[in-house]
């Protein structure tokens, strides 16, 4: 039974330069509650721009040119994201949709403690909480992602890559959002498969506990095939194919999807993808 969480309709983003460049072209998709959607594509295909656009985090010259984004809140209220004013938008962010970046070194402010950066979220979104309650909430989050409460006063550079990543997840969980967007799209920081796998299992575990939906953004199609319910393949700002992961794997429709699939040699499959 369909139970949509996010409906994106005819959504376009334009780089307002001369001549204007369409970064995202008429994207329409529906994300179900509790679903993991993979957004696959190569650099410059518009997948990250689309993710930013959903939260209206675009910076000039990128502007939303058309379309609508509707968030179907758990309370039963439908929120038209594009119609929110600045203050409403600010409150919507992180409370309903949070983000996790893969380049977690840069995603955390290097000069303040991770405690302060977690605290920030509660301070602006939950002004009723007392200082002590906020502190307890931050410690609880750090325990939840197995970083440990004693790390609350640590600076980002004092933590390992995996720990920073988990701090980011703790932060993304803080307000118990209904959707988490994971941007895992940096070629140079994607080099540690063990850390990556650890993070993914953590997300999976937390998702079973809290029931949020996830949008995964990466160029790593094999990874998406394993973790996603459905996969959207993007190229040139368009979603050219959107289907359940198994469908994409077994019966890819679009030529480009086939090309992408063929770009990754099989780890354990028949040797000989590379002609030698």
């Amino acid at each position: 039974m369909p139970d949509p969480l996010l409906t994106v309709h005819d959504f376009s983003i334009v780089y307002d330069v001369d001549p204007p460049v369409k970064a995202v072209k008429n994207v329409t998709l529906e994300l179900q509650r509790g679903e993991i959607l993979g957004l696959a594509g190569e650099s410059g295909c518009g997948k990250t721009t689309l993710a930013y656009g959903l939260q209206r985090l675009l910076r000039a010259p990128a502007v939303i040119a058309s379309g609508s984004v509707t968030f179907h809140d758990a309370s039963g209220v439908d929120i038209d994201v594009n119609a929110l004013n600045v203050e409403e938008m600010r409150r919507f962010r992180w409370d309903k949709i949070s983000m996790v970046f893969q380049g977690a070194m840069n995603a955390l402010n290097p000069v303040t403690t991770i405690g302060a950066q977690l605290d920030d979220v509660f301070r602006v979104h939950r002004p009723d909480l007392s200082r002590r309650e906020r502190r307890a909430a931050c410690e609880e989050l750090l325990e939840l992602v197995a970083v440990g409460r004693e790390r609350i006063r640590s600076f980002p550079h004092e933590l390992s890559g995996g720990m920073r990543q988990r701090v980011m997840i703790a932060m993304a969980l803080a307000l118990r959002p209904q959707l988490m967007v994971m941007v895992m799209d940096e070629p140079t920081t994607a080099l540690d498969v063990l850390v990556q796998r650890e993070i993914l299992s953590q997300i999976s575990m937390l998702r079973h506990e809290f029931g949020f939906s996830v949008i995964f953004i990466t160029h790593d199609l094999p990874l998406l095939l394993e973790i996603s319910d459905r996969i959207a393949v993007m190229r040139g700002g368009e979603i050219i194919e959107l289907a359940p992961a198994r469908e994409i794997w077994e019966h890819p429709q679009h030529e480009y999807t086939k090309t992408l699939l063929a770009s990754f040699p099989r780890l354990t499959g028949e040797r000989g993808v590379l002609v030698r």
Binding site: V193, L194, P222, L225, E226, R246, F264, L267
Partner: peptide
Amino acid sequence: RELRSASPDPEKHF
């Protein structure tokens, strides 16, 4: 072994 099982392997997965 750890590395191998952490690397995506859709073939085996499906």
